[in-house]
Computed example of a mutant assay.
Amino acid sequence: MITNEDLLKEVSQKELLQLSDVNATGEIDQSVIDDCKQDSISFISSFITIPNNPSPLLRDIAVDLTIIELKKRNGFPKEAIKEAQEKCESLLLKMASKKIPTEVTSGTSSRPVQKKRSFVHNSERLDLTGF
Rank of each mutant, 00 (worst) to 15 (best):
Q13S: 07
Q18D: 13
K14P: 00
H121P: 01
A62M: 02
S42P: 01
R73C: 05
K72T: 08
L70N: 05
A62I: 03
L65N: 04
E79L: 04
G130A: 13
D39N: 12
D64E: 07
K94D: 07
L126K: 05
R117S: 14
P56S: 06
K116G: 15
N23G: 06
I44D: 04
I100H: 03
T66E: 03
T66L: 00
F119S: 14
S12D: 07
L126H: 01
S20I: 05
T66H: 04
E86V: 13
R73M: 09
S45L: 06
N53W: 00
Q114F: 14
F47A: 11
F131C: 03
I41H: 05
A96K: 15
I41K: 02
K9S: 10
K87P: 01
I100A: 01
K71Y: 09
K37P: 00
F43E: 02
S45Q: 15
K78L: 11
E79A: 06
G26L: 08
K71I: 06
P51I: 07
C36R: 03
A62F: 05
V113I: 15
K94L: 10
K87Y: 14
F76W: 09
S46K: 11
S31C: 00
L93K: 14
D35S: 12
P112S: 11
C88V: 02
L91D: 03
L93M: 15
G26W: 07
K98N: 15
I33W: 00
T49M: 10
L128R: 07
D34P: 02
F43P: 00
N74I: 03
Q114Y: 11
T3Y: 01
V104Y: 09
T3F: 05
V32A: 06
V104R: 09
T105P: 00
L17G: 01
Q13D: 09
D127N: 15
L58P: 01
N74E: 13
T25D: 09
I33P: 05
I41S: 02
V120A: 14
I2S: 08
V104P: 04
Q30N: 15
S12E: 02
A24T: 11
D127H: 13
C88F: 03
K115P: 13
N4A: 13
F76E: 11
S20R: 00
T66N: 00
C36F: 04
G26T: 01
I50C: 11
I67W: 01
S109M: 15
A84Y: 09
I41L: 12
R59P: 05
L128D: 12
I67M: 01
A24E: 04
E27N: 10
K116A: 14
I28A: 07
L128S: 03
L17Y: 06
N52Y: 12
N4T: 10
N122Y: 13
K72S: 11
Q13A: 08
Q38C: 04
K14A: 10
V63Q: 04
A96D: 11
N52D: 15
T3I: 02
L92F: 08
K87V: 12
S106I: 14
S110V: 12
V63C: 10
E5T: 12
D64P: 02
N52G: 11
L126Q: 06
S118L: 13
D39Y: 07
Q30W: 04
N52P: 10
D39M: 09
D127A: 09
N52V: 12
K78N: 13
K98C: 10
E103H: 06
E79T: 00
A80E: 13
F119E: 15
N122L: 14
L16F: 10
S110Q: 09
M1D: 08
R73D: 05
R73P: 01
